[in-house]
Amino acid sequence: MLQLDRVVKVFNEGTVNEKLALDGVSLDVGENDFVTVIGGNGAGKSTLLNVICGLHAPTSGTVSLNVDGVEINLSKMLEHKRAKYFGRVFQDPMMGTAATMEIQENLALAMLRGDRRNLSRALKKKEASFFQERLAQFDLGLETRMSSKVGLLSGGQRQALTLLMATLRRPRLLLLDEHTAALDPKTAAKVMEITCELTAEQRIPAVMITHNMKDAIKYGNRLIMMNEGQIIYDVSGEEKSSLHVRDLLLRFEQASGGELANDRLLLA
């Protein structure tokens, strides 16, 4: 459904800071995929998601999306235009919500993702009670604080809210960039639970970056490992569910360790 074809992303091209962040990534995410993505720091995981959502334009290659049988080339589409296809949750809990606005106002903004905004009321009564019902599902007590400013919420509450905002209108694909990394283990588990609930309920395909290898194995039907801007490992189905953390570590060390040996050789 989502297709990346030989996507290359070079930052600061032609300067001393030139950085090849994506090195010809091809990827096909299916309608029923929940893909977990792992890889070391700077492997290009975030860049991958950012190229998909349009924050960065790829240096070369194409990103396209199949919407109800129609192939849409996203490469030239601006970030806010693409937003109708993607739900996004970021690593930083501050990033996904407007802190100075109320919980219900944030949800009302998300309710219009992909629509043209007009001069009718932003927050309709009927919607407000719908939002309240949806939040009550999470058991976080947020449903009683609909008119509180989001800035007063904890990181975990904010991520839960951001998740709801990302899925309030069913996106074609949910993009999660280490969305539990800034939370304590208990809250992270809760947010993961909500993630599974929401994606299962509406059958939303997802790409989830995580640094937690246990999570990467536990969740989803497919796992991708990235290193230096390339996908070095892509497993799914049974092979994926039978993986162990040490298998992944081994894989990872083979990939990056090999590089390390080369560096040593050069130095010697």
Binding site: E79, H80, M95, A98, L109, L123
Partner: peptide, 18 residues
């Protein structure tokens, strides 16, 4: 509301199609 949100968090706004 979209204008107020823009002043509050631009990245979130673009993610919400604003």
């Amino acid at each position: 509301a979209a204008m107020r949100a823009t002043g509050s968090n631009e990245r979130m706004c673009r993610a919400q199609g604003i």
